[in-house]
Design a protein around this nucleic acid. Structure first.
Length: 433
RNA sequence: GGAAGGGUGGCUGAGUGGUCUAAGGCGCCUGACUCGAAAUCAGGAGUAGGGGCAACUCUACCGCAGGUUCGAAUCCUGUCCCUUCCGCCA
């Protein structure tokens, strides 16, 4: 969440930055300030009363020690009333604070100054591209057709097992999926210096709050229930991304400055309800409720945050380069930024069969927005604690990568050539069904 | 799921209603002594939120949330977690 002190001290700046997102959130600032002001006034009042009560209680203790019970009783009577006022005010303060935080937790992060202004994806800026669109001596097929013909994916049975948006990878499809996961993990661990972690695939609501999924996007999550106990519904959620558990690994901790940067790499399936999203019903792998992803997380010193973002994007790009896939890097405009992000690069890979680019990675610097929500700090020096920048990036998302891969590497004879870097994992040079 | 025990500062560990301003020990930081170190001695050291230009000061925090009380680390209730044992289970 945003720093309440920043809102207090520079409300116009905060309003101006929020306005660039075009979602109207800047109108909430006055409300936050009013609620915050009320909270502080009440706090000052109740704390004065508490100081008074502490003083008198101490006096009572002394009187009791001297057996002066009559005087002690008189003071007790006097203090009882203060206690009642304190109890009442404590509740009011808690309400004021909860009210303020309810608004604060729904405000998105401020876009970084280097983010181009804009309303929609149309205003995003392409910053670079790698490779060229491949040319074919034949009309390239689309992934649904290729996958069904080579029996890589059984869409019908995936739907039978669970419902639309869930797919069953079969035989070489399943093996390719697994090979890609392992290839990406190995790359990031061995060459990019990440520490591999294998997180839980269910997380608490606190973790979802910490990364900014909640409270605003509760409707996008799958909630779990333990057995038949409805009371447990909503305690645990299927991870929408490994970012949810992994970014929270150090929640509530104070890291030592020499621990930074903390770099984690994790595989997880990702579960997304995609409630209300357009095109959920479309066949294929492009928009599904469950997909695999290798996620990268970096917890870094604030002053290095943006250099780290470039590094992170480079790590994700390396995956696509090694797989020989043409892609472009897009800098998202203010209006297209995610809730928690201050700056985001999307990696879009070319899918010849679709004739379009597919988003396979989103690399973001969330600055201290998430760190503040999860109580993550580091000891900047002897007496000063600060919130680190938390970055996340897909390295990369699999279902769409799978699409780009089979469409790019399809051959005239209907087979798929296996990119050299995957051959050791797949123990094959081509996939012929 | 059942039974028992337990959660106190960086660690260990005392504390069963009132100088708890949380003892003692270990470790850490600063200083003294020393050529330097060890040992010794003295001092310091948590987190968050308020108020104040500042020196400073107030409030809260003994797993978490409530309750009792003038006053709670301490008593009561709930809850989470850990350990051990039993049951079930991959």
């Amino acid at each position: 969440m945003l720093d309440i002190k920043l809102i207090r001290e520079q409300p116009d700046f905060v309003r101006q930055r929020l306005a660039t997102r075009g979602a109207g959130d800047e109108s909430k600032i006055d409300e936050v300030l009013a609620l915050d002001d009320r909270r502080r006034k009440l706090l000052a009042e109740v704390e004065t009363l508490k100081a008074q009560r502490n003083r008198v209680s101490k006096e009572i203790g002394a009187l009791m020690g001297q057996q002066k019970t009559t005087e002690a009783d008189a003071k007790k009577q006097e203090t009882r009333e203060i206690g009642e006022r304190i109890a009442l005010l404590d509740r009011t303060v808690a309400e004021a604070e909860a009210g303020r935080d309810a608004v604060l937790l729904r405000l998105p992060n401020l876009p970084h100054a280097s983010v181009p202004p804009g309303k929609t994806g149309a205003d995003n800026r392409e910053v670079r591209a790698w490779g060229d669109k491949p040319s074919f001596s034949f009309k390239p097929g689309a992934h649904v057709e290729i996958c069904e013909r080579l029996r890589l994916v059984d869409f019908a049975r995936g739907t039978k097992l669970t419902g639309s948006g869930f797919v069953l990878f079969t035989n070489w499809g399943a093996r390719l999926e697994r090979a890609l996961i392992q290839f990406m993990l190995d790359l990031h661990i061995r060459e990019h210096g990440y520490t591999e972690v294998a997180p839980p695939f269910l997380v608490s609501g606190d973790c979802m709050l910490g990364v900014g999924q909640f409270p605003k996007f509760l409707d996008q999550a799958y909630a779990a229930r333990e057995g038949a106990d409805d009371a447990t519904l909503g305690r645990l959620f299927l991870v929408p991304t490994a970012e949810a558990p992994v970014a929270n690994i150090h929640r509530g901790e104070i890291l030592k400055v020499d621990q930074l940067p903390v770099c984690y790499c994790a595989y997880s399936p990702c579960f997304r309800a995609e409630a209300g999203a357009a095109g959920v019903g479309t066949r294929g792998l492009i928009r599904v409720h469950q997909f695999d992803k290798v996620e990268l997380i970096r917890i870094v010193k604030p002053e290095t945050g943006y250099a780290e973002l470039e590094k992170l994007a480079g790590h994700a790009e390396r995956v696509l380069q090694l797989l020989g896939l043409h892609y472009r890097v897009v800098l998202l405009c203010t209006g297209d930024l995610g809730f928690a992000s201050a700056k985001t690069y999307d990696l879009e890979v070319w899918a010849p069969g679709q004739g379009s680019y597919l988003e396979v990675s989103s690399c973001s610097n969330c600055e201290d927005f998430q760190a503040r929500r999860m109580g993550l700090r580091f000891k900047a020096d002897e007496r000063f604690n600060a919130h680190p920048h938390v970055l996340n990036g897909s390295g990369t998302a699999l279902a769409r990568l799978f699409v780009a891969l089979v469409e790019t590497w399809q051959q005239a004879d209907g087979t798929i050539a296996v990119p050299p870097v995957l051959q050791p994992y797949l123990k094959a040079e081509r996939i012929a069904g």
